[in-house]
Design a protein around this nucleic acid. Sequence first.
DNA 1: TATTGTTATACTCTATAACTATA
DNA 2: TATAGTTATAGAGTATAACAATA
Lengths: 155, 155
Amino acid sequence: MTGTTTPPPATDLGLAESLVRLASLVQRTFVEVGRRYDLTAQQATLLCRLAEGPVGMTELTRMLHLEKSSLTGLVDRVERRGLVARTPHSCDRRAHLVVLTPQGARAATDYHDDLIARLDTMTCELPPDDRDRLERLVAQVLAGATGCTSAERAE
Amino acid sequence: MTGTTTPPPATDLGLAESLVRLASLVQRTFVEVGRRYDLTAQQATLLCRLAEGPVGMTELTRMLHLEKSSLTGLVDRVERRGLVARTPHSCDRRAHLVVLTPQGARAATDYHDDLIARLDTMTCELPPDDRDRLERLVAQVLAGATGCTSAERAE
DNA sequence: TATTGTTATACTCTATAACTATA
DNA sequence: TATAGTTATAGAGTATAACAATA
């Protein structure tokens, strides 16, 4: 029903440039929402990753794309605030699992819900069909980048 | 030509969650490309903002969403590396314009071109129609967020 | 020897508060 | 007084290198 077949975008930044701006906008939203809960974007990301269950340090470095020493510091800071705890691994005595405390779980949920609500607000003026289309297109980009990148294959 | 009218996305994360992942992916790309040129994401962003022409410090704080003292430091570091220079403002003796040096202009161009190329690669598996659609949808989200946000109106 | 994680160190990034110089 | 910008300070985030403990 969109009259023309595929008209070029009105304000033509190019797709890549548009993605840069979108990413910056979303990134700023991470930070703004984080401030409400006194969480940095990195801390919030960590908590959200732990919401599904305990994760080992090494696995976390892969999930967050951090060096292990960087993760040590990040976990230290949220542990000091009582949001996570290090628990011994059952079989490997070198390893630790990082788990959310009840307080950390609450923070993770609150942050996540708030973030999603804000992002939904950002797209709420799009008609439902367009939102679905956008989601599907983004998913395709993510599938390509996450699944088939040469960097990912090399790893 | 897309058979169904509006089928729900296959892997249904929801739109907001998809945007979170996309933003993280793009952000990581900023950092990776930056490393090639020995630039942090923030330094690269600054250089790219200056590519259109000299900008005053106060205006830069608005463009980069930084406090003025944070900007002082950021400009200091790239100035120390010879990528930008502070030049006096013609009429206001308190003010400075930040300008790219020739070396900084080269870095800005190289970084920008590399970044755009990488992001284009990320979307190059999409059919041209889908790329246009995606660009238009992202542009709509940006227009809404940049133009009509309550936060923006409040400012 | 390899892996898991921490410590030491150095830098960048950021904000708040206090300050200087100019308008 | 208000604005443009810097300085001082403190804390978060990150990486590299060296290390300890366990596998």
